[in-house]
């Protein structure tokens, strides 16, 4: 991957910068320029604002990967997971600082800034988010007890693991 291709996503990969539709209040990660939840997509164009995720969430599903993706060979076996953040959006990332045997669906995690992979000995080193267990957050779903910057009128969502975010 070229430097520019990775670098241009830095705000998202380093700081979990997403977007919120100011028409229907749905939060997205990564940011989008058109809101798929708005009945008339056109009305959302230009109405999405930057919005940072808290990085807190829980494991929706996971796998312990033995046959690594390119650049991840040194990390096997590693835990790959889909995490549902408390603001709604789901992300794919590794779960670290935990025995893979301890990972289960529902595990509370928090995003942490880590080295993702390096391109050989002289290539670019990629940084970004991974997730680590965080039993100190209460895991309350969006809409209740949210941090101040999260609106309380988030739309009602389907059951866990079924969010379109």
């Amino acid at each position: 991957m070229t430097i520019a291709r990775f670098w241009r996503e830095t705000p998202q990969r380093y700081n979990l910068g997403g977007a919120k539709c100011t028409v229907c209040q749905t939060v997205y990660f990564p940011p989008r320029s058109v809101c798929p939840s708005c009945a008339q997509h056109r009305q959302s164009i230009g109405k999405l604002e930057p919005f940072h995720l808290s990085g807190e969430g829980e494991v929706v599903t996971f796998s312990v990967v033995h046959d690594a993706a390119e650049g991840f060979e040194m990390q096997v076996p590693y835990v790959l997971a889909i995490v549902r953040t408390r603001e709604g959006p789901q992300l794919t990332g590794q779960v670290v600082d935990v025995d893979p045997k301890e990972v289960k669906i529902g595990l509370k995690v928090r995003a942490t800034f880590r080295k993702l992979r390096e391109e050989g000995k002289a290539g670019v080193i990629h940084y970004g988010y991974k997730f680590a267990p965080a039993e100190d957050w209460d895991g309350r779903p969006p809409g209740r007890g949210m941090p101040a910057h999260v609106p309380s009128e988030l739309p009602t969502r389907p059951a866990e693991g079924s969010a379109r975010a």
Binding site: D67, Q75, Y78, T92, Q94, G128
Partner: peptide, 9 residues
């Protein structure tokens, strides 16, 4: 960008 880069296969 949002799966493979994070180790997904």
């Amino acid at each position: 960008e949002w799966e493979a880069v994070f180790g997904a296969t």
